[in-house]
C-alpha cells in the first residue's frame, strides 16, 4: 500500500498539470476555434453579400450560373456568369496540369536526389519565387510572354495559354516546397528498406516515397489550386479579358477574379452590378471548397489503399 499523496501535494500536482497542460491546451484551442470562426465569418460575410443578388435584386440563380449573357450596363441588364466560371476552371486546371509534374520533379530532386544542392540553391530559389508579387509576374507576362506567344503561336498573345503559364509559374513554388517537405518528412527506414531490397533510387522514389508522400503532395497541390483560383492581378493582365468562352489555347478569355477586380472598384456598393460581383466571389469560394474536398477524398482513398 503506497501512501496516498497528501491533499497539498495533489493540489500542487494539479496546479502543475493545469499550468502545463490545460493552459496551453486552452490557448491553442482558443486560437484554433478563432481561426475556424474567422473562416466561417468570411463565408457568412460573402454569403450575405453574395446572396443579395438573388434575394434583393431578384436575379435568377439559374440565369447567373448557366447563362452566357453578360450585359450589366444594358437597359435590361443580364447577369449570366457562365463565361467567367468556365474561364476560371479552364485556366486553373491548365495551370495545375502544367505545374504539378515540374513541381513534383523538383521536390524529388530537392528531397531525394541532391539534398545539398536542394537546400543551398533550390529551396531559397523557390522561396524567392513565392515572394515575387503577382503584379510583377503579370508585368513580366505582359512584356515577355504575351509578345512571345503572339510571335510563335499566332493570335493576339493575350490568351488562355499565357494566363495558365503565368499562373503555373506562380503556383509552382507553393506546390514544390510543400511537396519537398512531404518527402523530407518520410522516415529514413522507408528508403533503407527499399534499398536493402535491391531497388534503385528511382524505384525507391517512384514506388515507395511518392505514394507515401502523396497526402502531403496533395496538400501542396490543393493550396496551389487555391492560389490559382484566387489569383487575380497577374492573370488579368495577360488573358485579355475578352468576354467569351475560348475555342483554343491562344484565344483570349476572362475569368471570375478578373471581372471582380475590374468592376468591383468602379461599381457602387448596393447596386445589382456590384452585388453580382459578390455572388461571383461566393461562387469562387464554393468552387474552391469543392475542389479541395475532391482532392482530399482522393488523397484519403489512396492512403487507405496502401
Amino acid at each position: 500500500m503506497a501512501n496516498p499523496p497528501s491533499r497539498k501535494v495533489l493540489g500542487r500536482i494539479n496546479l502543475y498539470y493545469w499550468k502545463h497542460e490545460n493552459l496551453g491546451r486552452g490557448l491553442v484551442t482558443g486560437f484554433g476555434i478563432f481561426l475556424a470562426g474567422l473562416t466561417l465569418l468570411m463565408a457568412g460575410f460573402l454569403a450575405v453579400k453574395g446572396l443579395s443578388t438573388f434575394l434583393v435584386d431578384h436575379v435568377s440563380p439559374l440565369e447567373f450560373l448557366f447563362s452566357t449573357k453578360w450585359s450589366p450596363d444594358a437597359d435590361v441588364p443580364a447577369f449570366g456568369a457562365l463565361i467567367f466560371i468556365v474561364g476560371s476552371i479552364l485556366i486553373s486546371t491548365l495551370a495545375l496540369l502544367i505545374s504539378t509534374p515540374f513541381s513534383i520533379s523538383t521536390a524529388m530532386f530537392v528531397a531525394e536526389i541532391s539534398p545539398n544542392l536542394g537546400r543551398k540553391v533550390l529551396q531559397p530559389a523557390i522561396e524567392i519565387f513565392v515572394g515575387i508579387p503577382s503584379v510583377v509576374y503579370g508585368w513580366i507576362g505582359l512584356s515577355v510572354l504575351v509578345p512571345f506567344i503572339r510571335r510563335s503561336f499566332g493570335g493576339l498573345g493575350f490568351s488562355l495559354l499565357a494566363g495558365s503559364l503565368v499562373l503555373a509559374l506562380m503556383i509552382f513554388p507553393t506546390i514544390t516546397s510543400l511537396a519537398a517537405d512531404a518527402f523530407r518528412a518520410l522516415p529514413t527506414d522507408f528508403r533503407e528498406a527499399s534499398y536493402a531490397l535491391g531497388a534503385t533510387r528511382w524505384q525507391t522514389v517512384r514506388k515507395v516515397l511518392l505514394p507515401a508522400a502523396m497526402p502531403g503532395i496533395l496538400t501542396g497541390v490543393v493550396l496551389g489550386l487555391a492560389r490559382a483560383f484566387g489569383e487575380a492581378l497577374a492573370v488579368q493582365m495577360v488573358i485579355g479579358n475578352m468576354i467569351r468562352i475560348p475555342g483554343k489555347l491562344t484565344d483570349a478569355t476572362v475569368n471570375l477574379t478578373s471581372i471582380i477586380t475590374m468592376d468591383m472598384g468602379n461599381t457602387a456598393t448596393g447596386t445589382p452590378w456590384n452585388d453580382v460581383l459578390w455572388s461571383m466571389a461566393l461562387l469562387l469560394l464554393m468552387i474552391s471548397f469543392l475542389f479541395i474536398l475532391l482532392a482530399r477524398t482522393t488523397g484519403q482513398k489512396r492512403r487507405s489503399l496502401k
Binding site: A74, G240, M242, V254, T261, M262
Partner: peptide, 11 residues
C-alpha cells in the same frame, strides 16, 4: 453599344 466578345479589356 459596344459589341462584347470581340474586344480585349484592360483594367
Amino acid at each position: 453599344v459596344e459589341a462584347t466578345g470581340i474586344a480585349l479589356t484592360e483594367d
